[in-house]
Design a protein around this nucleic acid. Structure first.
Lengths: 121, 121
DNA sequence: CAGTATCCGGAAAGATACTG
DNA sequence: CAGTATCTTTCCGGATACTG
């Protein structure tokens, strides 16, 4: 019985992490950026349902937290792209695990393989 | 360069996972339960700042999602305890990683070792 | 002890329109 | 293309009081 619950150092760093990464989009955005640099529009298309406003806000918060780098190219059609910083990449394994877990849970625990035709009853 | 962003199967299972595990308390609760069964009051004390209402609600949602088991003992002082299911335990590595990451980020990236006296400037 | 039952404020998130 | 600017809605999370 080594671990009574109250041994938590301050109060579990997960709360801290979730205040930073919680919300609907943050981790999904980071996941997209694991594979490399992407433009605003690419991210937008990769995240069906997100609005321009949300994507902008989330990206700015991620930038403020030092997780992504924002690069503006002053060209004729404006171009901005986003890249994970080293700190941002420190979350790669977590986003990977969460993604895998989410897929596993959805397909195995619940029975929802893919949105679409249901298997006959 | 196999992975352009738009290869996402449906739309990234992370979104799904975060809808289920997001919010301020879910993962912190799961983390507490990794070490084994705990009573309602224990969890309450282990999560400073959480209200009875919140703890109850979050636990019920976790139960509904098949992540925790709720056991009621009909005794004179009522007693209820909570245990991770196998599915719940499938998140152990993720909560562990997130906790470690949160601690690392807070102490290394930002300079906040522990709430308390600041080191001299 | 382990909850319910209400009430409530503010942040999160969405819709829509406009711009450098 | 990559944003801003508003407006509106949703609902998460908290405070408080009561109960089997």
């Amino acid at each position: 019985m080594r671990s009574s619950v109250e041994e938590a150092p301050d109060h579990c760093a997960i709360e801290f992490a979730m205040e930073m990464l919680g919300g609907r989009w943050k981790l999904a955005i980071l996941k997209q950026l694991v594979s490399g640099t992407h433009r605003f529009g690419e991210l937008r298309r990769a995240l069906p349902g997100i609005t321009q406003r949300m994507l902008t806000r989330q990206l700015r918060e991620l930038e403020a937290d030092g997780l992504v780098t924002r690069t503006v190219y002053r060209e004729v059609p404006p171009r901005v792209d986003y890249t994970l910083t080293e700190v941002g990449h420190s979350l790669d394994s977590i986003t990977e695990l969460l993604d895998t877990w989410g897929r596993w849970y959805r397909e195995t625990v619940r029975g929802e393989a893919l949105p679409g035709p249901r298997p006959p009853a």
